[in-house]
Design a protein around this nucleic acid. Structure first.
Lengths: 242, 242
DNA sequence: CGGAAGCTTGACGTCTATCAAGATGTGTGG
DNA sequence: CCACACATCTTGATAGACGTCAAGCTTCCG
C-alpha cells in the first residue's frame, strides 16, 4: 500500500508549490517505491554511491559530516519534503550522511531517472534547481550563525529556525514541536560542546522560555527567543515539492 | 569587444566540462554583454532583485551576509567560473551580497532567459543544478570547518581550499597565489576576530609555511598545512561552466 | 541486578574576543 | 614638499566564553 503521488499528504500543505496534473503523473512514474526505516537508521552514507534518491514523506532526521578525528558536524535537519541524494546524483558520491532520528517513510526514486526531469519535465527540473538553491541559502544562514553568534544566540536562532520549518509543515501543535534529537545532536549542529549546549538550554529553561525533553520541545516565549536571534528567522515563501 | 563564448578563455581549463557546439551557440545567445568593475565594487546586494545574472570571466571577489549588529560573514569566495545571482533568479531576491575584491570582468545574462535553459537546453539546465549542488557541498564543508575546528585548523583548511581552487583555474604561479583580500575578509570568512586571524597568520609565517601580503600568498609548505587541516582538501573532479 | 545511553552540574583551563596603541603605507590638499 | 587623514597591519594586555574533565543521576533494557 504505497501512497499515490496524487494523494500525497504533503501536497495539502501550502508551503509547497502546487503541481499540475501532468507533473503529478510524471512523479507517479518516477516513484519506484517506499522505504520505511526505524529511528537510528542510516539512510545514506558519506562516500557512498547510492543508486537511489529519496523524498521524505514523514519523520525527522539529520545530515552530518564526520571528521577524521571523530568529531561530527550536523549540516542540517531533514524534514518531510526534503529531497535526499541529489549530491550523489549529480556529483559522484554523497558528501555527507543522512540519519533518521525518528521512524521515517521515504519515497524512493531511481537515480538514473533523474535525467528525465530535464529531458521531459522542465518545470520539475526547474524545481530541482530551486530546491538546491534554497538548501544553499539555508546553509549560508547556518554558516553565518555559527561564524558570528555566541552560544545563546545560536541556540535561539537554531531552535527558531527549526520551529519555523515545523510550523510550515504543520507538524507542531501550537507551541509544542516534535524534537527527536539528543542534546549531542543539537551541539553538533550548533558547533558547541555537549556540556555548553546543556548549560545554555538550562538558562532558557530557567527563564521559562523553553521546555525540552522526551522528544518534545515547547516554546513558551517565541518572541523573546526571536529577539535573541540576531538573524531574523523568516519563512521563505513557498518551496517546490519533489 | 565582447568575448565570444566560442573563445571563452575559461573553456581551455580542463576543470570545466566541455561544451557541445550547440551549447556554445546557446550560451552565445544567452549572453547579453559584459560588465567590468573595479576592486571594491558591489556586484549584487542582499535583498536586491537584480534582473541580471553574471558569470565571472576574470577577477576575484567574495559573497557575504551582513548581520543587524554590523558583523559580517563571508560565505565563500568568488572565482572565475562562478555563477552569480541564481538565488535571486529562483527565489525572489539575493540572500547575500557579492563584492569584487579585484577588478572583475563578468558575463551578463538576462534573468528572465533563465527559463530557456530548462525549456530549450536540458543539458545546460542539468549543469545549473550540478553547480548549485556543488556550491551546497562547498558550503557544508565550510560549515564543518567553522563548527568543529580551532583557529589554526580553520586557517590551514581555508587557505588550502583557496589554493586548490586557484590551481584548478591555473591562476597561480607555482606556490604563488593571487590574494586580493584583507585580513578582515579572511577573519570574516573563518569566523575569527581580526586580531586572532593576524596572530594565527603570524605563527604560520614564523614557521616559514606562508608568506602573505601585497595581494599575494605564497605557500612554502603546502604539505604541512594540509596536515593541519583535519578535513582533506580535494579537487572535485570537474564542474560545469555556465 | 548490571550496564549502557543520555542528561546534569561543578571545577578548571585555555582559546579566542576585546580593548588599546603604535607602526606602516597611501592618497589628498595646502 | 609637507601635513594630515585614512586604511590596513601588528602587538601586548586583559577578560570572558566556551571546551574539557569528572562525577553523579536517571531511565531503560537485557
Amino acid at each position: 500500500m504505497v501512497i499515490d503521488c496524487g494523494h500525497c499528504p504533503l501536497r495539502k500543505r501550502d508551503v509547497f508549490e502546487p503541481l499540475s496534473d501532468e507533473e503529478v503523473e510524471f512523479m507517479r512514474r518516477f516513484k519506484i517505491g517506499e522505504l520505511k526505516v526505524d529511528a537510528g537508521a542510516t539512510v545514506l552514507m558519506e562516500g557512498s554511491n547510492s543508486p537511489q534518491l529519496f523524498s521524505v514523506l514523514s519523520g525527522l532526521g539529520l545530515r552530518y559530516k564526520l571528521l577524521p578525528n571523530g568529531r561530527r558536524q550536523v549540516v542540517n535537519f531533514v524534514f518531510p519534503g526534503s529531497f535526499l541524494g541529489l549530491q550523489a546524483g549529480v556529483m559522484g558520491e554523497m558528501k555527507h550522511s543522512v540519519e533518521a532520528t525518528s521512524a521515517m517513510v521515504l519515497c524512493v526514486f531511481n537515480r538514473t531517472d533523474l535525467w528525465n526531469f530535464f529531458k521531459l519535465q522542465p518545470t520539475r527540473a526547474y524545481d530541482l534547481t530551486w530546491l538546491a538553491a534554497m538548501e544553499e541559502h539555508f546553509m549560508g544562514e547556518a554558516l553565518t550563525s555559527i561564524g558570528q553568534m555566541n552560544a545563546m544566540q545560536r541556540m535561539c536562532w537554531g531552535l527558531m529556525r527549526y520551529a519555523t520549518r515545523c510550523s510550515d509543515l504543520g507538524i507542531n501543535d501550537r507551541d509544542r514541536y516534535p524534537f527527536p534529537f539528543r542534546q549531542q545532536d543539537l551541539a553538533d549542529a550548533l558547533g558547541l560542546s555537549l556540556v555548553h549546549t546543556n548549560k545554555t538550554l538550562m538558562k532558557l529553561r530557567e527563564q521559562g522560555d523553553l521546555s525540552l525533553g522526551d522528544g518534545v520541545m515547547v516554546l513558551h516565549h517565541p518572541d523573546r527567543m526571536k529577539d535573541r536571534s540576531l538573524l531574523p528567522v523568516g519563512s521563505p515563501n513557498r518551496r517546490p515539492l519533489i
